[in-house]
Amino acid sequence: MNRVDWGRIGIDGALVHAIARDGVAALVHDMPAVPYQGPDEHVKRWVLEHSDVVEEAWRSAGTILPVTFNVIVRGDSAVTAERRLRDWLAGNTAALASRLDALRDRVELRVEIDLQVETSAHEDPAVAALHLEMPGKPAGLRRLLEKKLEQSMRDAANRAADGLYRDSRRRLASVSEDIVEIKRHRPPVGHVPVLAASLLVSRGAVESVGAELAALKAQDPAVNVRFLGPWPPYSFANVAPGASQVPADSDRTGGANQPRDELRFPGGTAE
């Protein structure tokens, strides 16, 4: 059991050290048993400092399980926090090592595909008809027609988004090892959402994702793409046993680290 110093690279310059056990190590720093709390500006800085340590570890180790900000191990009179963490590492070495192996040379990419309403709905017959109807109408009727036009444009864009979603989900899933949609995604003003997701891909496949996105963009001028990463695989780090392999309640709608209604067949093929 060794303790290796990583230097003062932690939150507020805290000394980060590794607690290692059977080939698996936890990067930690000492702190009072109180969570970080404070104004947005402070939280932002702390989170980025946390992120820097995660990145540094990712670069040097090639694979990591990133831990969420503000996870604090508590000690008490019977057992110190460090002892508790060592015991936890010892009891979970196999599960941690296998998840670490699975994530080796994998990166997380974030993709947001949205559809610009006005451009997308431009050629819709109902929208075109309303445009023709508008000129020369009295103000009251115009307002009514404008409302109707806005709704028709949204409907048309949403129909286009349905079709685009089917294509993009299938294409992006086929080059990813895992894909989790982002529930909280809000598209820019004047857009309808198509697909927002975190992808787990091998380093070598980042370009394939980029190629699929380029093809989607070329297919429709109304498509707007945001493509972020590569990041450490935050959304895919969970080590809960069988997190994505056991079918869970089908009404459960959670984030990436919650059980999903999926059965996985690694190495298999469709045919």
Binding site: P35, L48, F69, R110, G255
Partner: peptide, 25 residues
């Protein structure tokens, strides 16, 4: 930046046992 902050506060490994006192919570 906003995306990264969201990911860091919301994702990542969640440990078991009662050794945690806070999870961005």
């Amino acid at each position: 930046l906003p995306d990264l902050i969201e990911v860091l506060l919301d994702k990542g490994i969640v440990l078991h046992l009662d050794l945690i006192i806070a999870v961005a919570d």
